[in-house]
Design a protein around this nucleic acid. Structure first.
Lengths: 158, 158
DNA sequence: AAATATTGCTTCGTATACGAATAATATTTT
DNA sequence: AAAATATTATTCGTATACGAAGCAATATTT
């Protein structure tokens, strides 16, 4: 019964996820990078030079995912991987001039329609949207933090 | 300037997307189906028998995606594909008893922590969350409707 | 110093997720 | 009725996205 509403929440989220994905496909046509690539690349440019792991933390993606995004960025000559000197496990990532150029045109990380609509909202409305999203996010990933340490302790052997 | 807030919106959305994805991986271990599979499967069970295209509309996924989800559901013997008699382009999908069984244990389509927290909220708060999400969704996919050729007419038709 | 653990990144396997192209069937137009 | 158009599902190619396992380098313990 109340489940119906939860289902609706999920459907709304799926709509949002899909919209973001479709935007990503448009980005790649207009700017040559997908949404996740743009997100990562923007971060790299801000840092000038940054280890891959820090990137993953920052953009909330797993290392494995970031590695594959970097692969493609490297293939397109948007980034360089430089083995770190002080810690040879680390790989430092740097953006190329070509990548910087892309961001001169400020590719919109979300659909422009959304951005302009959002900016037109009253301040309290913007805050409401953002805080609602953050609240949902913490309702969803709170568990992770609490649950994961405990679940792994007992298998000391592994 | 105001872009900062938009970026924060994106980060919050990414957190949510990731949480949903991680939940999906937990679902498959506990119930044998992933999140999207469960979503689709639930719909199929409700319908008893339904063409693949209707499913795609309902759950907000492309046909191509639904096809691949159905492939896996079929491989695990959770659904059957039955060629439609009256329209041979259509493929009707039906859930098997094994699939029905899974839903007897009511696999949570979102993380249980979220669901229980959500249900504890006051009614007006639940409505606020849902309507905020729906609003974001329509701010994001509104463009689609304008941009795509034939969806503009649809108001009265379907 | 040697053994062990941890860290940082990559590789592998699996599952979304999409558009474009394709194939088969229906519907509409001529 | 034949031709043109539209609809339905699949196939193909690409890009996320993750955990687990692997590997090499570093840190910690013994």
């Amino acid at each position: 019964m109340n489940n119906e509403q939860v289902d609706q929440v999920l459907i709304a989220l799926r709509r949002i996820i899909r919209a973001i994905d479709l935007h990503s496909k448009k980005l790649v046509q207009q700017y040559g990078v997908t949404g996740p690539q743009a997100l990562v690349l923007k971060r790299i440019i801000d840092y000038k030079e940054v280890p891959a792991g820090i990137l993953a933390r920052d953009v909330n993606l797993s290392q494995a995912t970031v590695t594959s995004i970097l692969d493609r960025l490297e293939r397109h000559d948007y980034v360089q991987r430089i083995p770190s000197q002080d810690d040879k496990r680390k790989v430092l990532v740097r953006a190329t001039p070509a990548a910087v150029k892309i961001f001169e045109n400020a590719p919109p990380l979300l659909q422009e329609e959304f951005i302009s609509a959002y900016k037109k909202l009253e301040n309290w409305e913007q805050n409401l949207i953002l805080s609602t999203l953050q609240r949902i996010a913490s309702m969803m990933d709170a568990k992770e933090i609490e649950a994961s340490p405990f679940l792994t302790i007992r298998d000391a052997t592994e």
